[in-house]
Computed example of a mutant assay.
Amino acid sequence: MNANIASPSKTANAIATAKTLAEALPFIQRYDRETVVIKYGGHAMGDEATAQRFAADVVLLKLVGIHPVVVHGGGPHISAMLNRAGVKSEFVDGLRVTDSATMEIAEMVLSGAVNKQLAHWITQAGREADVRGVGLSGKDARLFTVEKVVRTRKDPESRIEQVVDLGFVGDPKEVDAQLVKTLIKAEQDYVPVIAPIGVDSAGATFNINADTAAGALAGALTAKRFLLLTDIEGVKDLDGNLITDMTIKDAKDLIGSNIAHGGMIPKLETAIGALEAGVEAVVILDGRTPHAILNELFTDQGSGTLIHS
């Protein structure tokens, strides 16, 4: 008579999996029915397999009782399309200068291809449990009403402050999160997926830094956690070492001392703003690492840099 006998290695793997699930229970309880806003961006978005793995992790969050809300970037996708169209990009403090031609392409990429593909991957990953990704733009239901961003910088020769016109780049002035709240609390398991586009009071379309948009939404939702997934492992000190834990004051000091520069500046600024708006904690972590959000939320070890008040 033939018998199916489990190999020692399979048994050990099964026990390890069960142990991991048991150890995750206190963390699952901590975040039960809480909102977690996830900013998904950086070059990690360019890898389809990574994006699909991310989508599956988001579905898992929904199935264990967490309300995930995804705000995505798409800088590399926009740059690729701009290069194809022969449009040059300029950045100031990590923000893309956006004229009318750039704005048209940015909206097409963000609200179109990137947004709908990510929502589709979430729906595909959750099809057996009927979890569905819902693609939105910040223009929908006036989620983001913006005001034009104004930046200044010193002339390298005269050292005089000069105003820099970033074009159609906005910061959220008002966040009407009612539609998002309705979706995440609905009987149907919806996961909102939001493109960082908004409108001003006159109805003109503006590009929003995805970090800033996600932070503003996290504050409006009073999220338990705000996770900034990017293509670096977190905030680093002058020696290149990862800083695993910091306060609002530490973050402000990094900006003031110029240790933080480029794209890290808006990340830290939006983390500070989200914390001051009532978010419990913000984490900057590497979205390319497999299951980074699960490791952060469901283990003692965590990932990246935790910022708290």
Rank of each mutant, 00 (worst) to 15 (best):
D171N: 10
T17M: 10
R84Y: 06
A141N: 10
T17I: 11
V282A: 13
G219A: 10
F91N: 10
A251L: 09
A186K: 01
P290M: 07
P196L: 13
G41I: 02
P196T: 15
T230L: 03
A218Y: 06
G135F: 02
G41M: 04
V97A: 14
N83Q: 15
T247A: 02
S303V: 15
R33V: 08
Q117P: 01
G278C: 10
K116V: 00
K185G: 10
I38V: 15
E276H: 05
I122T: 02
A56T: 05
S111N: 04
A277W: 04
L143G: 02
L110M: 06
E147M: 15
K224E: 05
A223N: 09
A14K: 11
L183K: 00
G74K: 04
G273C: 08
H67W: 05
V163Q: 11
A106C: 07
N209Q: 08
T17W: 03
D237M: 06
T212S: 06
T20W: 03
G75M: 01
H120A: 14
Y31A: 13
A106M: 06
V175A: 03
I265P: 05
V37R: 09
N115G: 07
S257F: 08
A113G: 00
A125H: 11
D300G: 02
F168R: 12
F206M: 05
Q301Y: 00
M246P: 11
L285H: 05
K173Q: 15
G304H: 02
L25E: 01
G263T: 09
G65C: 03
L61T: 01
A292R: 05
A274N: 02
V169M: 04
V283L: 01
G138K: 01
A202P: 03
A113Y: 10
K236C: 02
S89Y: 06
V180S: 08
K236L: 06
K224L: 00
G278T: 12
D286P: 04
K148L: 12
T247R: 05
L61I: 00
A271T: 14
R142H: 11
M108H: 04
A195V: 07
A18V: 09
T98V: 09
F144S: 07
L306F: 11
L110H: 04
L297K: 10
S7F: 01
S201C: 00
E128Q: 15
K173G: 05
L285Q: 12
E276A: 07
L21I: 15
L82K: 11
L238A: 15
L179D: 00
I307Q: 10
K39R: 03
Y190P: 11
K62F: 03
D57P: 02
T98E: 08
L21W: 13
A274G: 07
V146R: 04
A12L: 11
I284V: 15
V59G: 03
W121G: 02
R151G: 02
D57Q: 01
L229D: 13
D57S: 06
G75H: 03
D99T: 12
R96V: 11
V180A: 05
A213K: 08
G215C: 09
N83H: 13
H308Y: 15
L294R: 00
L143E: 04
I122F: 03
V58L: 00
R153I: 04
A55L: 07
E161Y: 14
W121I: 01
I265W: 00
K236V: 09
S7T: 13
I78F: 10
A223E: 08
E269P: 07
M45L: 15
V58I: 14
I194M: 01
H43P: 10
